[in-house]
């Protein structure tokens, strides 16, 4: 009898370790991506900090007067050295002017945009729809200086004519009354230009929200014998209401921050002016651009402070709009 030599079995490979722990490469990847993602927070924070840092001395010395008074006076002595104690900076007229122009723009743009969006969503045949959507999106891509030049040379003559008509027939409304017949470069003209600039953005938001209207509700309305307009009133409007409000606010934010297009068509005057047809208005962004060229160091600090206020106002309006838009679609259920 011979014994069989059994060779030893080869050792089993060690069991693979199963883990949900990310590997080193993934840790790096996640770290880098998170860092990149947080850059928007970093940038927004830095904008706030640096503008505050540059404008702080002005905000501190002027206090609340910076946003409640409207004289802008950078005093200099004979050697062109600024005298802080005699300088006064106030942007009340500019802030109110910004708000007035933006409100006019929204008042004109929202009805047009909502109706355009209705047409594109519920009325247009698909071939027309494609072309129109492209055209409206294209309008959003036009640079603002183009709107500025077009507004100044092409639109302003017509807008002045419309302003005269408004004044003639609605002059009894305080906003439309005039003390002097100066219709050029008024807040109204600026508002019309801005309204054309924000039509695409309001339209695209309204269209998106109308497009999400639940089909079953639309069909239910038709099945109950509704006309198309009846369906829109009973189903689409209640569903899209808050989204449209948000879109309008987004448009308001855009209109308040617009610089170049307003600069060319608005006559900037350091006085609060509620008469929207009169050729004297205010705009924070345009004022910054206008004053910047010949500003003294002290004035530049004041401009930085004005920029900070503009930044905060637009940020608040935009954030509010964003919250409203993202919550829309929950109404009307």
């Amino acid at each position: 009898m011979s014994s069989v030599q059994v060779s030893e079995r080869p050792a089993l490979p060690e069991k693979r370790q199963l883990t949900t722990k990310p590997r080193f490469s993934d840790k790096v990847f996640r770290g880098v991506v998170t860092g990149g993602g947080l850059s928007s927070l970093l940038i927004l924070g830095m904008i706030f900090i640096f503008l505050l840092y540059q404008g702080f001395s002005i905000l501190h010395s002027q206090g609340l007067h910076f946003i409640t008074t409207s004289d802008w006076n950078a005093a200099v002595d004979d050697n062109n050295v600024p005298i802080p104690s005699q300088s006064h900076f106030g942007i009340a007229a500019m802030l109110i002017g910004t708000l007035v122009c933006a409100t006019i723009a929204v008042a004109i743009a929202v009805p047009i945009s909502v109706f355009t969006a209705l047409f594109l969503t519920f009325y247009a045949p698909s071939s027309v729809k494609k072309i129109m959507v492209t055209l409206v999106d294209l309008m959003a891509a036009f640079p603002s200086i183009l709107y500025g030049l077009w507004g100044f040379f092409v639109l302003m003559p017509s807008a002045v004519y419309w302003a005269k008509l408004l004044n003639k027939f609605f002059g009894w409304i305080p906003f439309f009354s005039m003390q002097a017949p100066v219709f050029d470069r008024s807040p109204f003209v600026a508002g019309v230009v801005l309204s054309i600039m924000i039509i695409p953005i309001v339209t695209s938001i309204a269209r998106e929200i109308f497009g999400q209207t639940p089909l079953d509700r639309i069909q239910a309305a038709y099945a109950l014998g509704s006309t198309r307009w009846g369906m829109i009133r009973a189903v689409a409007f209640p569903y899209a209401r808050s989204g449209i409000v948000g879109g309008a606010m987004l448009g308001l934010g855009r209109a308040m921050g617009e610089t170049v297009a307003v600069y060319t068509v608005l006559n900037i005057v350091y006085q609060i002016n509620w008469h929207v047809l009169l050729g004297a208005g205010g705009n924070v962004a345009s004022m910054i651009l206008m004053k910047f060229g010949e500003a003294t160091p002290l004035e530049i600090k004041a401009l930085m402070a004005a920029g900070l206020i503009l930044f905060l106002v637009t940020l608040i309006v935009n954030s509010l709009a964003d919250v409203i838009v993202s919550k829309s679609g929950k109404s009307g259920r």
């Binding site: 928007s40 503008l51 308040m256 910054i288 503009l310 637009t314 935009n318 954030s319």
Partner: peptide, 17 residues
């Protein structure tokens, strides 16, 4: 939310920053 807010930053503010 921040990216959305950032898209509303006025261009002149970016320049000032």
């Amino acid at each position: 939310f921040l990216v959305q807010s950032m898209s509303g930053v006025p261009s002149i503010v970016a320049g000032l920053f």
